[in-house]
Write a protein that binds this DNA or RNA. Sequence first.
DNA 1: TATAAAGTTGCAAAATTAAGAAACTTTGTC
DNA 2: GACAAAGTTTCTTAATTTTGCAACTTTATA
Lengths: 106, 106
Amino acid sequence: MITEDELKRSEIRAHMFKALAHPLRIYFLEKLKEKSWCVCELADEAGIPKSAASKHLAQLKEAGLVEDSKTGTRVEYSITAPCLLDMAACAEGVVLENRKKQIGLN
Amino acid sequence: MITEDELKRSEIRAHMFKALAHPLRIYFLEKLKEKSWCVCELADEAGIPKSAASKHLAQLKEAGLVEDSKTGTRVEYSITAPCLLDMAACAEGVVLENRKKQIGLN
DNA sequence: TATAAAGTTGCAAAATTAAGAAACTTTGTC
DNA sequence: GACAAAGTTTCTTAATTTTGCAACTTTATA
């Protein structure tokens, strides 16, 4: 039977993955792998209002995946954990394998 | 500006992370790292009805993170991608770092 | 054959999350 | 000081997810 501690632990991790569970947040992280970007640039790139971009970035930050630094009126976001790159690669692999498998079934 | 292809790509990846974005699904994956388990065992471990466990496992399977094999009336689930272990470790690191940072701020 | 055990699926209610618009801060500039 | 640019926050509505229960399928067994 699951303990309180195990549940709490799982919640914390799930919370981190929840931050990755949105197309635009994934897209932002991909962009941030190259270099840091400010909110308005990312909003423009994604074609969404600044308010939405700001909220998505806040989620990534809250999960510890990115960090920000203010310069004048701009807020630049950058990636924190380098292992996120490997994670993305793993995701890529899983997705490809899964696709192959599903095609095989049809 | 984001292209259709980039968006599609991000959606596919986000979909995979969505499968990880739930405490019980994380918990199930952790259990499956040790050995394979059947639905009813995992349901008992988590203290939830079989139907709920079945649905969570179906999500993990659909995302290509686990696979199943039937034996009699039992359906055993096991993990597919070994890199998921590294991913979990990365998640662990991010969570810990983030916690440190947040404590530092308070 | 009748029954039970293991899983899955469908449905409605409850809970979370996302999106858009408007208001509000803060910083820099004319 | 007035204005504009960059961000964040708030609020409401819309969309997704999660949950629990009941119904149903399949396989094993008395």
